[in-house]
Amino acid sequence: MQSLRLLRTAALRAKPMSSTIRAPVRRGYAEAVTSDKIKLSLSLPHQAIYKATDVVQVNIPAESGVMGVLANHVPSIEQLKAGIVDIIEEGGANKQFFVSGGFAVVQPNSRLSINAVEAYTLDEFSLDAVKSQLAEANKIASGSGSEQDIAEAKIEVEVLETLQAALKA
């Protein structure tokens, strides 16, 4: 009914002599949001793993907890801790990267930028190396070193335990 009326007013406004009367292009809110994909950029100081690539969902290990980011997420900045960034690509393929921590910036218009120092897929890690480091870090953390040394060793323990759990899963 309304579109009929619109057509008629358009026709009335059109010059009487013009033979081609086109209906005005209507643009609604639903059309402005066309994509349900999020553009992901995953960058390291030495490499860009993803460069504004369309993906479906990204799960990030934020300090405040693991969060999933879909298209049209509320803009926010999240500090990351060491953990797995889980990327669900178009077509359902799933990719996992273990990142060292960094920042994830959810920008308006469905853009997500993740900056990290290091990011590797799980198959690039050696479980034995993780175990031997973990044993060493645990020794320092429970030893009688300075407060600084113990705090640093505890960070290592936390990172390595997360990594170990990820590798075993």
Partner: peptide, 30 residues
């Protein structure tokens, strides 16, 4: 969370420690 912050470790330092631990955990070639 943030236990390291109380010991005077900055986030920047946290990142470099975490990155170092990750690098050391990689397989030989990487």
């Amino acid at each position: 969370a943030f236990a390291w912050k109380q010991a005077g470790v900055s986030y920047n330092k946290y990142l470099s420690i975490a990155a170092q631990a990750i690098r050391k955990s990689l397989k030989e070639q990487a």
